[in-house]
Simulated scan of single mutants.
Amino acid sequence: MEDYATKLIVFGGIWWTSLFLLARKVFGRRSFDFSNRIVSTLHACLAVVLASASVQDWRCPVCPLASKSSPRQMQTLAVTVGYLLYDLVCCFLDKNVKMDNTVHHLVSIIGLWSGLEYQRCGSEMVAALWITEMSSPFLHLRELLKELGYKDTDLNLAADILFAVIFTLARMVGGPYLTYVTLSADNPFLIKAMALGLQLVSAFWFYKIVRMVMYKLSRRTTLSKKLATS
């Protein structure tokens, strides 16, 4: 791995931690998770911007396949590795450790780290970053709204549906295609394994999201009927 990438990972970890501490000070009355989600939202927005800026050819966003990563792609991946390490530590400190989320973090860290080590597959990896982070701001918005007192409101339901739609399009339409081209190209085995693992985690989350949306819609319908008959 290039020295500047390693330094950027370390700097990124310090930067995201500093933002979290600032958020804790500004939102002192809010929970640990609230401050962490503020930082996570900022990272998701930055990751999408950096990933978009590092695409070499928008006519084929994942091209060239299995090629040497550009300096901009390496920087983008290093920033996210720093964030993922920070966020994984936060999950343990907040005692909010879930198996699926931990697997997602480990798969992402190992996959991106291996890409930095091999200095290859930059096109595929920034595309994966773009796909996975596209829905993240809306994921965090759902939880932020709940803590702000907007649970079970139309605004919260709209955030739920928007998150579900973007997640589905990104991870269950774009994701399988990206996984296919990554597995088909001449990429290192470890990167192929991590691409497949990330898609399997996304499929599991898609199943949970479908159940969540169906539950909320059915609950809203039931409440509406009760109000109409009362």
Rank of each mutant, 00 (worst) to 15 (best):
D3W: 12
A5Q: 12
V10K: 00
G13T: 08
W15M: 14
S18G: 13
S18M: 12
A23M: 08
V26E: 08
F32Y: 15
F32N: 10
D33Q: 09
S35P: 11
S40Q: 03
S40I: 04
T41C: 04
A44Q: 06
Q56N: 08
Q56R: 15
W58C: 09
W58Q: 05
R59H: 08
P61S: 04
C63M: 05
C63L: 03
P64G: 01
K68V: 15
S69I: 11
S70N: 08
R72P: 01
Q75E: 15
T76Q: 09
L77A: 12
T80W: 13
L84I: 13
Y86N: 06
D87G: 03
L88V: 10
L88N: 13
V89L: 12
C90T: 07
D100I: 14
N101I: 06
I109W: 08
G111Q: 11
L112Y: 14
G115W: 07
S123K: 06
E124F: 02
V126I: 15
A127F: 07
L129K: 07
W130Q: 01
W130G: 00
I131D: 02
P137S: 05
P137N: 02
P137W: 01
L144C: 03
K146Q: 10
G149K: 05
G149C: 02
D152K: 12
T153N: 06
L155V: 10
L157Q: 10
A158D: 09
L162Y: 08
F163Q: 05
I166C: 08
I166H: 00
M172C: 11
G174V: 00
G174S: 03
G174M: 01
V181E: 02
T182M: 04
L183H: 08
S184D: 04
D186G: 05
A193I: 08
G197Y: 05
L200T: 14
W205I: 10
Y207K: 09
I209S: 04
V210P: 00
V210G: 01
R211E: 11
Y215N: 14
K216A: 11
K226L: 14
S230L: 14
